[in-house]
């Protein structure tokens, strides 16, 4: 049986199609690093989205949004999953958001320091009714939702935080919580 299983696996490995996630390397100002169908973002705007992602889930002693390619997932989802009106609002909110940074720090969000970025986001999120337009609020709400989704379904998260097993083998119906390893249950 072991041989059958191994043979089966081997055959499958040959045909497995892994989606290639290509990290952005050289971020030219005018050229975006990811091909989008609907959203029209230049390289700077893409970088803005990337840094908002990273501010929502920063790299610490563990990987953050950029390390887990979450920013690419966010762009892909906004591009493929949202109706045009919401995409337009996303872009409008994004541009307005950057202006808030210019106004407060005299520099764009991308140029601002990590501490300033955090402060700006904290101010908006904590006072979301004050000073912030519906477009900015919608932009940040979408950013947060997709960043969390992307991070929680990233290879890093599903290999280290909540461990996904492609081939779980046995199912245990009733075991003490304490019998699980530090990594918790496999999902």
């Amino acid at each position: 049986m072991k041989i059958t299983r191994r043979a089966a696996l081997r055959q499958c490995l040959i045909i497995t199609v892994g989606a290639a996630l290509i990290p952005s390397c050289m971020q030219d100002k005018s050229k975006p690093a990811i091909a989008l169908k609907h959203l029209k973002l230049d390289g700077d705007e893409e970088k803005l989205v990337t840094e908002v992602c990273e501010t929502i889930i920063p790299a610490t002693d563990t990987p953050g949004a950029k390390d887990t390619f979450t920013h690419l997932f966010v762009l892909r989802m906004v591009d493929d999953m949202y109706p045009k009106e919401e995409q337009d609002q996303f872009v409008k909110g994004m541009k307005e958001f950057d202006k808030l940074s210019e106004k407060k720090y005299d520099k764009s969000f991308v140029e601002a320091s990590p501490a300033q970025r955090e402060e700006l986001l904290a101010n908006i999120i904590n006072n979301d009714t004050n000073d912030v337009s519906a477009d900015v609020a919608a932009f940040l709400k979408t950013m947060k939702k997709l960043t969390v989704q992307g991070y929680m379904s990233s290879k890093y998260y599903l290999s280290n935080v909540r461990v996904y097993k492609l081939v779980p083998g046995k199912f245990y119906g009733c075991i003490p919580v304490t019998s699980l390893s530090e990594k918790g249950p496999s999902i």
Partner: peptide, 20 residues
Amino acid sequence: YPTTNMNPWEFEHRGQMPLE
């Protein structure tokens, strides 16, 4: 079975179908 051994993160939209 082109997707049979794919991990969740290997799906471009993590499983969802594009709006179109």
